[in-house]
Design a protein around this nucleic acid. Sequence first.
DNA 1: CGCCGAGTTGATCAGGCTCAACAAATGTGG
DNA 2: CCACATTTGTTGAGCCTGATCAACTCGGCG
Lengths: 242, 242
Amino acid sequence: MADDTETIGLLAGLGPDIAADLLKQAQRRTIRTDEVLFTAGQPACSVHVLACGAAKLMQTTPGGARVIVKYVRPGEVFGSPALLDKFYPTDAVAVTECVELQWPSELVRTVICRHPRVALNVIGDLEARLREMEDRLRDLSNEPVEHRLARAILKLVETFGQQTGEGIEIPFPVSRQDLADLIGSTLPTVSRTLSAWEAQRQIRRARRRLVIADVATVARVLYEETIPEPKPRRSHRRAARR
Amino acid sequence: MADDTETIGLLAGLGPDIAADLLKQAQRRTIRTDEVLFTAGQPACSVHVLACGAAKLMQTTPGGARVIVKYVRPGEVFGSPALLDKFYPTDAVAVTECVELQWPSELVRTVICRHPRVALNVIGDLEARLREMEDRLRDLSNEPVEHRLARAILKLVETFGQQTGEGIEIPFPVSRQDLADLIGSTLPTVSRTLSAWEAQRQIRRARRRLVIADVATVARVLYEETIPEPKPRRSHRRAARR
DNA sequence: CGCCGAGTTGATCAGGCTCAACAAATGTGG
DNA sequence: CCACATTTGTTGAGCCTGATCAACTCGGCG
């Protein structure tokens, strides 16, 4: 398992011996698909890293609406609120069989004191997530569903995509509802758009998995009919028309 | 200026002497209203803290759409991407006369090594911003404009609000366009809603400032007509109707 | 074989965006 | 201090994206 050292962002730049030592101190847990790693509202007392597999972080509002905040990929930190003794803000659910590492938060805090590099790694991770959220916020404010959907899929592709004979496959089930929750839309709307793309052979489904046959064409959705708009300062919302 | 020590989250928990020392090393800059602190895309080489005043962080898309990512309040860190030698992801614009402190990023990195507490402070700040973004994402996906607007205003109130004779005032100009960019809507829509609230005396305007006369009633917007929805699991979007 | 959750698809309707013309407020120079 | 220019806000009319509701299909499973 020593090769985790290379994957895990948290331990980057630490020197193999130290990293290995920290790894040994981690609590290791295997979680089956659809099982819950933690729940929103629970007190967060350890910092988590996904060693392998994939998980989704999501919130459910009292009204029943759901939002997928993020898909976690191997090597990423999640549950960092633990460092501040807060509560988990989201549910975390395994979407694959996966392996998770946990360190109790006080331990991590002392590690940070001894190896401040770890703190920088955490900061880097958080910073990246913040950027990601800013992007999504922009999309949600300005882009139509079709664009948001394309972008969400492209993102899944570059984060989790695996080349197969049929195209690039997302190696875990992504339901239409999931996609809807990811882009702030609804199942029927997503279904419609995807049906169209399926008809055009840009995507397909293989045993519960999403397969993107033609990434370039999906990406093109984002650029076609983006009005060059000669006017110096258009005001707002929906750059596309016609 | 030693009293900055108490306000500045970055320096929390450091001991007055150390904090004072760090403060001395900061580059201090005064910025006038509407001036730019930094621009999206610039290489970020120092970490900023707002000593006093207020600033907004915003992005402008090529299409001309704008998003206000955050209003920065005194004591907050902004421009932390510098720690990783990245680029500023947003523009930062002063909305008041304000004073900013800057530390070159390498300096901050060494400070972090000597005083890991600083790293925890940064992490705390980022974590809080992440939570905030998650909330906004949820709102944008699920709530109608009216709710988002109410929430945005309430947030401004609790972050910047100052009690005055007329009610609680936001101590800097917030245009309808700003509010629109904050909640992902458009100027005309915001204007309409606000006109209504103005007519009902919940808010007013005094010399370019927003004054919230009746916070409770604005807050009530969020709760009235939230359907109790007996059904165990409604699917999605817009909990409110009728 | 019948059930159940997930997906499809049609019909309908409304929130809120767009366009546009006008009114207020702020600022500028004489 | 007033006329004009510029920016910011107001308000009406119309339309379109995408949500909602609903009926039906499909694939998997006990």
